[in-house]
Simulated assay, not measured.
Amino acid sequence: MKISCIKLLAVSLLMSLAYACSSSDTEKPDPEPKEAGERWSVEKANQWYEEKGWLVGANYTPRTAINQLEMWQAETFDPETIEQELGWAEDLGFNTMRVYLHDLAWKNDKEGFIKRIDQFLDIADSHDIGIMFVLLDGVWHPNPEWGKQPEPTPHVHNSGWVQSPGAEVLSDTTKWGYLEDYVKGVLTEFGDDERVYIWDIFNEPDNTNDRAYGDIELDNKKEQALKLLKKSFKWAREANPTQPITSGLWYGDWCNPDSLKAMDKFMLEHSDVITFHAYEGPKVMRERIEALKRYNRPMFCTEYMARPRGSTFENELPVLKEHNVGAYNWGFVNGKTQTIYPWDSWDKEYTSEPNPWFHDILRADGTPYDSSETALIKEHTVE
């Protein structure tokens, strides 16, 4: 009886040991959750920018893409054109580009999207260009659709550009679950990637964009956009990237901290680096720089240069360099976005190339729109 019990106990122990060994091979302990990040200190932000040096470049979409989706979808992703155009950017002395992503690319083709971002970053890095990615966008068409994108409407500025997310998702907080997955997923995937310089969380979130909305009603867009902006910053902090995060001011009076809009106040209090837009000419550019200096953080003008409005390279690039403010003009190569045409092309008929161009620097063959402009850019960028 004793012998059989001993044998039974031994067999039981051996079986338990075997199970434990096999389990250890297949069942890994859950990884430690990544600790949520905090807003960078002023000292950390300024040290980061001192190491980067003055950043200058453009908002970039390849000439073969009408919008973010056409840029990133598998069928229309165009690395050959990107390679060529970023080579032209390198020749101008640009060391950075601001580039828009889109939530539908994540939702519909997550793995492919990640691979194409990685390929794009490889191309940019080969030209010594670091990227500021924009995750969400509140401007132009409110109903983005996955799949084949429309052809440009002749002579119309950004006739096919799409918001991210669209109005249907923005208006319904119950549909924001995949947006959290998108923001956290992209920032986790590339949050330690030295090829990425900055994360711009939400472009012009409270732009009512009346021209593009037409019959679509979204009376509370500003309120919903502020809610999503706050959520997106929370998600970004939980992803805890090693790069700074930001969202940019784009209109209004920023001189008096006590009169800031709730949207602007949140952006200024939660961004690691300060970003803003300025299309009104050198006087306003200087005023905005002076108003934002009080935050003692690195500053980046992420959109400027609209020639008919006095916002030109000649007027503003020297100001930006003088104050060490990073500079991203709107547009690079004239293409399917057609941003050589002004904003009012949505309301006013144009039948030929405007004089002067509104945005963009180069023609589709890489030649300058204005060779004196490209010479001036090189004076400020090429040492």
Rank of each mutant, 00 (worst) to 15 (best):
C5G: 08
L8Q: 06
L9G: 04
A10F: 03
V11I: 07
S12N: 08
L13R: 14
A18D: 13
Y19T: 15
E27D: 15
P29I: 03
D30S: 10
E32M: 11
W48L: 12
W48A: 13
W48I: 03
Y49N: 10
T61H: 00
A65D: 00
F77P: 01
F77K: 02
E83A: 09
N108Q: 11
D109V: 11
D109C: 07
E111F: 10
I114M: 01
R116H: 04
R116D: 02
D118L: 13
G130N: 11
M132R: 02
W140C: 13
E145A: 12
E145K: 07
E145I: 15
W146C: 11
K148L: 14
Q149W: 13
T153R: 05
H155C: 09
S164V: 00
L179T: 00
D181K: 14
V186G: 01
T188F: 07
W199V: 00
D200K: 15
T208P: 12
A212F: 07
Y213L: 04
G214F: 03
D215I: 05
E217C: 07
D219L: 09
K221Q: 09
A225S: 08
K231I: 09
L249V: 06
W250M: 09
Y251V: 12
D253Y: 07
D253N: 07
N256K: 03
L268S: 05
L268V: 06
E269L: 03
D272E: 06
V273L: 12
K283T: 00
K283A: 05
R286H: 05
I289T: 04
Y295E: 01
E303D: 13
A306K: 09
S311H: 03
E316K: 01
V319E: 06
L320T: 01
N324F: 02
G326V: 06
Y328S: 04
G331H: 08
F332D: 00
N334Q: 09
Q338M: 11
S345I: 00
D347H: 12
S352Y: 06
N355G: 09
W357H: 10
R363G: 11
R363I: 01
Y369A: 12
D370C: 06
D370Q: 05
T374H: 06
E383W: 14
